[in-house]
Design a protein around this nucleic acid. Structure first.
Lengths: 167, 167
DNA sequence: TCTATCTAGTTCAACTTTCAAGAAAAGGTC
DNA sequence: GACCTTTTCTTGAAAGTTGAACTAGATAGA
């Protein structure tokens, strides 16, 4: 599939290639770095930690599964497995949703909240050292805009709510 | 662990938090997007595709396992599994290294090269649509600098060659 | 040479992710 | 209500990843 009707694909320029390589390297190393940091200090991968953070910020520290999955940009299936694991560790528990008998709420337990409280400073430090301490304020602002544009562009079609929101 | 000696951790500012969220969303969605695109069009995850690209650019389309792992920022273990899989698919084959009997070369097969040739245009399109088509030239330049800084900061300690290069 | 150490790469088990399939409740529509 | 579709969430198997343990070959020192 080529962009236009000319036979020749629209390759990346030298600069674009080098930016793309840098992007892939930086994001790979960052994900790796945070996964290790959190596996070591909190006993879970980065994505699981993110789920707990979301829950901790939600009203009454609980969220519907689908909403949580949507916010975390993961599939429901993946979330089901993740919550099962976090439940086994005692950081989360499931709760039937009163208003919709199909629904489940994932609830952050007190142990889970306490664990977050303990590990948050170390995690923020890791993020800071890897990213914010190395960038100028201008670069931080610019990065924010760029990532916002990219995220929006990849956001599921349906304006935002109840359409096939991933894939 | 708190950054300084004051008791209070150095939390992220509101702007930093919002940039960090955007970064996480954008990179998650991007990885997801490319994984699906390549799984669909080339029958493999993004990281495997990247390995083939590296091989295609190496002299004689072959590389030592360790070097390939280092360039791709993955562990040797992961690479072993990946190459085993790619070998089963016929895109890569292993070859003993003549000069070091412990060594293995991963070699891109003709089929692998042909597969790359067919799927590259679609992949470039996907990258372009998701990122470069949405950014101004100024933003592309800025993104390149930022990612370079971050990648360098996370790069393994040893200047570059033969020291513990990951973790 | 003998020995200790290091390096290259693989393997195993535990864990995570994906995809497709499925059960159960909710929401139409007639 | 009966019927069909949609939504919510889970499950199970296959694929991929991780970290530690392991084999074999290279290296260096006495």
């Amino acid at each position: 599939m080529t962009t236009a009707s000319t036979g020749e694909p629209h390759w990346l320029s030298d600069e674009e290639q080098s930016v793309w390589r840098a992007y892939l390297h930086a994001t790979t190393l960052m994900e790796d770095h945070l996964d290790r940091q959190l596996q070591r200090d909190a006993g879970m991968p980065h994505i699981y930690y993110g789920l707990l953070v979301q829950l901790s910020q939600a009203p009454r520290r609980r969220m519907r599964m689908t909403e949580l999955a949507k916010d975390a940009k993961i599939t429901r299936s993946r979330l089901s497995h993740a919550v099962a694991r976090l439940e086994k560790s005692g950081w989360v528990r499931r709760e039937d949703c009163p208003s919709d008998k199909r629904g489940q709420n994932a609830v952050l337990t007190d142990d889970g909240f306490e664990m977050l409280r303990r590990s948050a400073p170390g995690h923020v430090d890791a993020v800071r050292q890897a990213m914010f301490d190395r960038l100028t304020p201008e670069q931080v602002r610019s990065l924010g805009e760029i990532m916002q544009v990219v995220a929006t562009g990849l956001q599921p079609e349906g304006t935002d709510a109840d359409l096939p929101w991933l894939r």
